[in-house]
Design a binder for these strands. Structure first.
Lengths: 343, 343
DNA sequence: TTTAACAGCCAAATCGCTTTGGATAATTTT
DNA sequence: AAAATTATCCAAAGCGATTTGGCTGTTAAA
């Protein structure tokens, strides 16, 4: 049943039926009720295809996953972030459009989305330093919101981000206060802006404590369990091993723990570990008591908020670019303790 | 630039331009080249909105996430499965449409999708026993493919599934061969069909070995790390604890391991653990050597294959319903060993 | 040489909705 | 009672593609 058929059944014009259903005032309350009832009775649902051609809106929000970033992004971020965003989208009548795309096509896909008119807005993930997608989206006049930030970008844009620098700085300070001097950083890929900021927080705290950074204690890679295990193990096997680790993700910290335990050491006594915890629903940092000392910030909540901001932007309810910076919460767990005295 | 403008520029009719670009034969090779070049030059891209209204196809495939299942589904399945499916979609010009929906609306959403015409097909996740969505989708004549199976459903439908029964049966047999007699099962939610099949495999193996099932050794819940930890710990604290565990997911097995180690026991010596391993990219069961003895089957590969099958179905290249059952591979790791002798 | 077949192109209808610009009747204002 | 509003409703023009049914010349068959 389409609009024409419904209007014929009712003996009304398509205009009136359309207006009645969409709540326009040029329709008497009596007919509106009559139309609503008929629509209900005949199970009429407007074709979104036609509506979007007529209105230019698709009620879809685009998320692009570049193939190269699959390992890191799809999993860590897309998992809970999308669940959060999806909730808000649903509440507002939107749906998500995910497209996996090879890196070479990454610029073109945004032009396509604009020209094709398949989405009303775009959520940008995991920006790098000086991310080219931002000026591109801006020039395309496609509403977008960035989850994270891109240092060095001159185009103004709206974003929501965790204060990554401050978070890791606090993690480092916490370890310094416990007397640690050899603190390792297992970071995410430093092509991403968040990882750059985290390193900067780490280096800042060390510098403030007059400790020279040791490059043998700094590694950066995809945030997987095996990388945490491997890099952590190698550092522990060094002649002058670290007494503490900062891991950029919970999953990496699991790997570090495995390396520690495999060497007969005890986490929290012999070696301390702090991690950044995105508060992943099915991999929580302990349900009752935490496993790791961590800087915690819910990526699902971020997804929700990003969705809200983007929808506001699409609806032109955002007069100027908005920025939201969240502070991560320091949760003390059993994985950190005083630095072992030198022996 | 739209079709009309392009055709005006070329001095051709819209019909001819459309046909030239879409490879129809009623166009001379000379004009086709001319049209292609002009399209390229003017950066013409057909509006998907208009195309889909005209053709009735949207080049989108729907995935529905019911809110209640968020914890379990979004994460475990959606993570790698979507990455795999997304790859194939991209290769074929499709994109994914994710909608998060509250349970009450779950039936209606499919009717909506059909009536609205927003997707060309649907991928059904995590079917339960006698899943009502299957007859519904069938009656709606919306092409769909089920990842998993739904026991008790009479409607014929196409599916791809792992042989869950056989997998867990083999896991159980492996432990029995090692001499274990008290084997615990930590299963996923048994409202899902896969969990029912796994339990059935477990019970079947026990029965074949003339061992009575002990309900104090069977638990079922969301497949999270904390649940594995909690249930595993409680069982170990029982007067007559199990000597081996079967965990329905890798993440749960991590929880079990934590419970084991916390009690000063050694996994693989004092207590054995086998798990089902979906081969999650960022949480692999060890990169070089496995952590757990496991039944392994890549959920990402399943995503890829499901996408292929569904696309074939949409394109009417599937004469009758197809079924594909995959066998999980038994990987022996250090987490299993002979049952400790009674003392 | 006539006729049939075909290659190449086009005008116009179609998909199903929204929205503009009236038209008509009822109501209010003068 | 006439004029000006206002409340309701409608016809038709869009959105931008695809596709049906024809209309011309050319070429091949009779």
């Amino acid at each position: 049943m389409n609009l024409r058929q419904l209007s014929e059944v009712l003996g009304l014009s398509q205009t009136t039926v359309s207006r009645a259903l969409n709540g326009y005032p040029e329709v008497s309350e009596k007919t509106r009720v009559r139309v609503r009832e008929a629509a209900e009775r005949h199970n009429y649902r407007p074709s979104l295809r036609a509506t979007s051609l007529a209105t230019g809106r698709t009620m879809m929000i685009g998320h692009v996953i570049p193939l190269s970033a699959r390992e890191e992004m799809v999993n860590i971020i897309f998992t809970d972030f999308l669940a959060g965003a999806g909730e808000i989208y649903a509440q507002n009548g939107y749906a998500m459009r995910l497209s996996v795309v090879s890196d070479a096509d990454e610029v073109e896909i945004y032009e396509d989305m604009k020209a094709n008119g398949v989405v009303d807005g775009v959520l940008l993930h995991a920006p790098s330093e000086n991310d080219q997608r931002i000026p591109l989206l801006d020039s395309l006049k496609l509403p977008f919101l960035v989850h994270g930030r891109a240092t060095g970008t001159e185009t103004p844009y709206s974003w929501l981000d965790v204060n990554n620098r401050r978070a890791i700085q606090r993690a480092t300070e916490h370890l310094l206060e416990l007397g640690h001097r050899r603190i390792a950083l297992l970071n995410g890929l430093e092509s991403y802006d968040f990882a750059i900021r985290r390193r900067s927080g780490y280096l800042g705290a060390l510098e403030a404590a007059w400790i020279a950074a040791d490059t043998s204690l700094m590694r950066s890679n995809e945030m997987t369990e095996p990388f945490g295990y491997k890099a952590g193990g190698e550092m522990l096997d060094q002649p002058n091993p670290p007494t503490a680790f900062i891991a950029s993700s919970f999953v990496m910290a699991l790997g570090v723990r495995r390396a520690i335990e495999e060497r007969g050491l005890i986490m929290g006594r012999d070696v301390s570990v702090v991690c950044f915890d995105d508060d992943i629903s099915y991999l929580p940092n302990g349900s009752d008591k935490p496993i790791f000392t961590a800087l915690k910030s819910s990526v699902r909540a971020a997804g929700r908020r990003c969705a809200e901001l983007l929808i506001a932007k699409i609806n032109d309810e955002m007069p100027e670019e908005q920025h939201e910076q969240w502070e991560a919460e320091l949760v003390i767990g059993p994985s950190t303790g005083p630095a072992p005295s030198e022996s």
